[in-house]
């Protein structure tokens, strides 16, 4: 067989493969976007964690940093009591030599065990939607459009057509009572602003019209600690959230499709993801491990320190979202 023979054989591949090949760059670029967003998130969270470690006097609250040795025994506990399950780097001796001012500052802040994890597990009580959101001339860097057509060479923050941020409408004065129809065996309902997941999905698909609701729903759950949500961009395949705070800027992409599990499964091979059960993980450039999983029609993203075991990941992700049948 010659190279020409093989080439002629390649010339006879099915239309399906050729059409698929034409789609591949677009898909790949989505994957890159997703990875970029995850990397940005992971970097931000890692930075935040390191800052917390440095600020925290050694030994003041060992439970905050101690790795959980038996994570599975704690899955039934309420989320707000969930101990941190991820192993963080060993504290440096320098931490004990911190100025005393630092040590005295810490107790003034409420010690939140969630802060040491990659993502906050606690769902704070709903906060009012900021009414002073910028309504004109959004800066391009603040808007990451999770569209499939973005070039992979672009970072989510630097690209995407800046979408004018609609002025938030008045915050609904009456919040619907959280009455999830899906079985949620924890204190934290998955879709607390809506009566059901379907309603949430239906409304979220309406795009900008549910702006406030999305913000309301996501800010407490996914924003890095202390970060303010700058903009939300609703695209065809997901929502981009851009935050800024004292620890820097963060982006978070929430992608959906008719079948998010399928979507994730197709997407993650492009970022060299490793699959374990329903979770997919890949290492970001800074060493953090990004975890993505789909559940009940949604896709979720988390980040944990590199070296976290799959058991810990299982526990970590279950603690966040539950409804594991």
């Amino acid at each position: 067989m010659t190279g020409k023979d093989l080439s002629m054989a390649i010339g006879s591949v099915s239309d399906k493969h050729l059409l698929d090949a034409e789609e591949a760059p677009r898909r790949s670029n989505i994957g890159y976007l997703f990875a970029s967003a995850a990397a940005v998130l992971a970097i931000g969270i890692s930075l935040f964690t390191v800052i917390r470690l440095v600020k925290k006097p050694h030994g003041s609250d060992p439970s905050v940093y101690a790795p959980t040795t038996e994570p599975t025994q704690q899955t039934a506990e309420p989320l707000n009591e969930t101990p941190v399950i991820t192993s963080l780097p060993t504290q440096t001796p320098e931490a004990t030599a911190l100025p005393t001012e630092a040590a005295t500052e810490i107790p003034t802040e409420p010690v939140n065990t969630q802060q040491a994890t990659a993502l906050p597990t606690e769902m704070p009580s709903p906060t009012p939607v900021p009414t002073e959101k910028p309504t004109e001339e959004p800066t391009p860097k603040a808007t990451g459009t999770p569209h499939a057509t973005q070039k992979a060479t672009q970072t989510p923050k630097a690209t995407g057509t800046p979408k004018p941020t609609p002025a938030p409408t008045a915050v609904p004065t009456q919040q619907p009572t959280p009455t999830p129809t899906v079985a949620v065996p924890t204190d934290e309902p998955l879709f607390d602003e809506f009566s059901s997941e379907d309603e949430f999905r239906t409304r979220i698909r309406q795009g900008g019209e549910v702006y406030d609701s999305i913000l309301y729903y996501y800010k407490p759950k996914h924003a890095p600690h202390g970060a303010e949500l700058d903009t939300i961009t609703v695209g065809n395949s997901g929502i981009g959230f851009d935050y800024s705070g004292k620890d820097g800027e963060f982006s978070f992409l929430w992608l959906w499709n008719t079948d998010p599990d399928d979507y994730i499964a197709k997407l993650l091979p492009y970022v060299n993801a490793e699959q374990h059960g329903r979770y997919f993980a890949y290492h970001s450039d800074n060493g953090a491990l990004c975890i993505v999983w789909g559940q009940d029609g949604a896709a979720f993203l988390a980040a944990v320190p590199a070296g976290t075991s799959w058991d810990e990941i299982e526990y970590f992700c279950s603690a966040k979202l539950v409804t594991v049948n």
Binding site: A24, G31, P269
Partner: peptide, 10 residues
């Protein structure tokens, strides 16, 4: 994978 297939065919 789709990506590898796309690259191969291009």
């Amino acid at each position: 994978s789709r990506r590898d297939r796309g690259i191969f065919l291009y």
